[in-house]
Amino acid sequence: MKILKLFLIIFFIFSFNHLNANNEEMKIKITKNLRCLVCQGQSVYDSDSEFANSLKVLVDKKLEKGFSETQIYDYFKDKYGEWILYDPELNKNTYLLWLLPILIFLIGGAIIFKSFIFKK
């Protein structure tokens, strides 16, 4: 048990360090996934508006405080609505969005199999 605990602690320290080292990378990733409300066609990363700049600063602060990626997304979702996320979550509104292309792929495959293989 003790060994396990020790192992877990080491693991957490390690992963925390790892997180810190990649804060910059994570910040880029997060800001690319946030949509700017001022220039609405751009991501926060690409945008240069005052709003986007503040958002970048805030993402930095949240990361420093040890917020995880999803926590940060939830935070912004709470403030500005789901619209701000470029990466829509899988929920009742978006089942069709995520699954329709896959469904089309499967149907396409079925048609191909049916007409070209089982006809033989």
Partner: peptide
């Protein structure tokens, strides 16, 4: 100064 508090309020301009 950094516009961070405004974001807490959900403002964008």
């Amino acid at each position: 100064k950094e516009g961070v508090t405004a974001i807490e309020w959900g403002a964008y301009g």
